[in-house]
């Protein structure tokens, strides 16, 4: 199987999370944070475009696939919620992405994309980590909100460790590293690592199988409607 096959799920992850982060613009808790969230959103959009370019026309891939054809993780499509929810989603994803991209080897096109993205991802992880510390160990309210987000998003983390077609990366060691890092950050943030299941008990699968959560359909409807309303148009 060609390594290019992995480009689709990775691109979908990046596109969908970029879109969610861009929803924050004009709503962030402070002006400085508007800039930070937009930077991360733009990095991810760039990653998505670089990956789609390996596969074909980026707009056809982003705008003209149906919900069931998207291969992104359910984690990244989760609605923003409050700032703690968004930061926790960022933390779970960026720690995983940094570990994953750090393990992509070889010289093929996905390796080139990963080599650039791993630097961006390190910054995203740092941003999420710094905020997790401040929210977890900030006020009673911020602690409560962040623990709630950690607990609520935990069930979407098991999917991170599904094998990625085309990438020869052992997922069990990656899972161990991820859990160790997340455990360390949560502990420093005075938060508790959840003990519940990290995946749904439903054999239909999850995002990597094109099975998504309900809010994703609405997100796509909004994202795609203008493009699809004008078939063949150039923008």
């Amino acid at each position: 199987m060609s390594a290019v096959a992995a480009a689709l799920p990775l691109a979908d992850d990046a596109l969908v999370l970029s879109h969610r982060l861009a929803e924050w613009l004009g709503h962030a808790p402070e002006l400085e944070e508007e800039l930070a969230l937009a930077n991360i959103s733009l990095d991810l959009l760039g990653q998505a475009r670089a990956c789609y370019a390996l596969l074909g026309d980026e707009d056809a891939l982003a705008y003209r696939r149906e919900e069931r054809e998207f291969r992104n993780l359910q984690l990244v499509e989760q609605p923003n919620g409050d700032f703690a929810h968004t930061i926790t989603r960022q933390l779970f994803f960026s720690v995983w992405q940094e570990l994953l991209f750090g393990r992509v080897t070889g010289t093929g096109p996905p390796a080139a994309v990963a080599a650039k993205a791993v630097k961006e991802t390190a910054y995203h992880r740092d941003h999420a980590e710094q905020w997790t510390l401040r929210l977890g160990d900030g006020t009673e309210e911020s602690h409560r909100r962040t623990q709630r987000a950690v607990d609520a998003l935990w069930r979407y983390t098991g999917e991170l460790f599904q094998p990625l077609e085309g990438l020869d990366i052992a997922m069990e060691p990656l899972r161990r590293d991820w859990r160790a890092r997340i455990g360390d950050i949560l502990a420093r943030a005075t938060l508790t690592m959840p003990e519940g299941p990290d995946a749904d008990a439903w054999s239909a699968g999850a995002g990597r199988q094109g099975v998504h959560t309900e809010s994703f359909g609405r997100m796509l409807a909004e994202m795609q409607h203008l493009h699809r309303s004008h078939p063949g148009a150039v923008w």
């Binding site: 613009l25 002006l31 400085e32 800039l35 959009l45 997100m219």
Partner: peptide, 25 residues
Amino acid sequence: ITRAPSLRRKAILIAKVQDEAGHGL
């Protein structure tokens, strides 16, 4: 932003709105 009809336009628009936050700052 959430309805931009191409990925290129989406990136441009995010960068532009971000600039406006920066300029306010």
